[in-house]
């Protein structure tokens, strides 16, 4: 059911965007870019989803549940926040790990804060790009003001769920 709602919403967004394309030339450019994105994305999605399935099978469920499950409470949430920045690589790596951990028994809160913490504090992004392009002061200011975000989200989600 959830997948259906998401598909309808995203489909409606796609149709609205298609209607914004003014003429045939723009539509062709959009199809070309879409095909290009598809060729880039499809092999990655397939391989990463398979990888997530395999790793979920291999993860020791008991330990995952103990460390990151609902019973782990605040310790589990802190561990999930700490694991975020340590995840190497791009978005598909962190989402695949989050999905595998969920399947193996991690709590939804842990998965949400792990993704949030990775988004904001991925050391790959910070050391490889942000420091060199933005400089030390801007990077440190951003990290400093962003520090509370995973904790705030963890608190709100814990109350909600």
């Amino acid at each position: 059911m959830n997948i259906l709602i998401g598909t309808v919403l995203i489909g409606a967004g796609a149709i609205w965007l298609w209607l914004q394309l003014p003429n045939e030339e723009w539509r062709r450019a959009s199809y070309r870019a879409s095909l290009d994105t598809f060729l880039f994305t499809a092999p990655r999605v397939i391989v990463a989803l398979l990888g997530a399935g395999f790793f979920a099978e291999l993860l020791p469920e008991e330990q995952v549940r103990q460390l990151l499950g609902t019973e782990a409470g605040i310790t589990g949430i802190l561990l999930a926040i700490a694991l975020g920045p340590l995840t190497p690589g791009g978005a598909f790596v962190s989402f695949a790990i989050g999905a595998a951990a969920l399947k193996a028994g991690a709590s939804p809160v842990a998965a949400i804060v792990y993704v949030t913490s990775w988004s904001l504090f991925s050391t790959t992004k910070i050391f490889a790009y942000e420091l060199s392009f933005m400089g030390r002061q801007a990077t440190l200011t951003r990290i400093l003001v962003s520090l509370p975000v995973p904790f705030v989200i963890a608190a709100v989600v814990s109350v909600l769920m």
């Binding site: 965007l17 959009s30 994105t37």
Partner: peptide, 17 residues
């Protein structure tokens, strides 16, 4: 698949616009 397809179209078209 339908969701990924629509997502790819949005992701590819938005930056053109």
């Amino acid at each position: 698949a339908p969701k990924i397809g629509a997502g790819i179209f949005i992701a590819a078209t938005l930056p053109i616009l």
